[in-house]
Simulated scan of single mutants.
Amino acid sequence: MEIRHTTNPTDFKAYQTERLRSEFLMESLFVQGEINLVYSHYDRVVTGGAIPTTGSLKLEDPDTLKTEYFLERREVGIINIGAEGTVLVDGEAYTLNKRDCLYVGLGNKEVLFESNNAADPAKFYIVSTPAHKQYPTKKAPIEEAEPTRLGSDSESNKRTIYKYIHGDGIQSCQLMMGMTLLEPNNMWNTMPAHTHDRRMEVYLYFDMEPESRVFHFMGQPNETRHIVVQNEQAVLSPPWSIHSGVGTSNYTFIWAMGGENYTFTDMDTVKMEDLK
Rank of each mutant, 00 (worst) to 15 (best):
L112M: 10
N231H: 09
A193M: 14
D168N: 15
R19L: 13
E23A: 13
R21M: 08
I242M: 10
Y203R: 05
T195W: 06
Q16T: 07
I161F: 00
Y251C: 03
R149V: 11
P239I: 10
G107P: 06
T86R: 13
E18T: 11
V229D: 02
K13D: 08
D168R: 15
E110T: 13
P141V: 10
Y162G: 07
G85S: 02
F217T: 07
Y162N: 12
I81M: 11
G167P: 08
M1R: 07
D197I: 08
E144G: 02
A145F: 03
L102Q: 00
G178N: 08
M191Y: 09
V89F: 09
N117S: 04
E72K: 15
K58A: 12
Y205P: 03
A193I: 04
T67G: 01
G55P: 03
F215G: 03
E92N: 13
V235F: 01
N222F: 13
G55L: 11
K271V: 05
T160C: 07
I170Q: 09
E18W: 12
M176H: 03
S249A: 13
T17C: 00
I35C: 09
G259A: 07
V38G: 05
L29M: 12
P147I: 10
T195Y: 03
A14K: 14
A131E: 02
R19A: 12
P62V: 11
V214L: 00
V45L: 14
Y39K: 14
L175A: 06
D268C: 00
T265S: 13
K163H: 11
R225L: 13
Y94T: 04
W188M: 04
E183T: 10
T53F: 00
K58S: 09
D43T: 01
M267T: 14
I142V: 14
I165Y: 02
L29G: 07
E110S: 09
V87I: 04
I79F: 00
T10E: 15
Y42D: 07
V46I: 14
A145G: 06
S241T: 04
E2L: 12
Y205K: 08
R74E: 04
S172G: 07
K133H: 10
N8A: 04
S128A: 14
R198I: 05
D63S: 11
T10D: 14
K66A: 08
A234C: 06
D197H: 10
E92R: 12
T129R: 03
L20R: 02
L112W: 01
T64P: 01
P184V: 15
T195N: 00
N80M: 05
R99D: 14
T160M: 02
V202T: 09
L181V: 14
H41Y: 07
T67Y: 05
P239V: 01
E183R: 14
F124Y: 04
E2F: 10
K276Y: 04
I227K: 00
T248Y: 10
E60D: 10
L102M: 03
T180L: 00
E92G: 06
H5V: 08
Q220T: 01
E68Q: 12
T64R: 13
E211Y: 11
Q32L: 10
A256S: 14
V89I: 12
R99S: 13
K139V: 01
G55W: 09
L65W: 09
I78F: 06
G107S: 07
L57N: 06
S241R: 12
C173F: 09
S156D: 09
Y42L: 08
L150A: 09
G178C: 05
V46L: 10
I51F: 10
N186R: 11
V235I: 05
N8M: 07
A119I: 11
Q220V: 02
F12Q: 02
I3E: 06
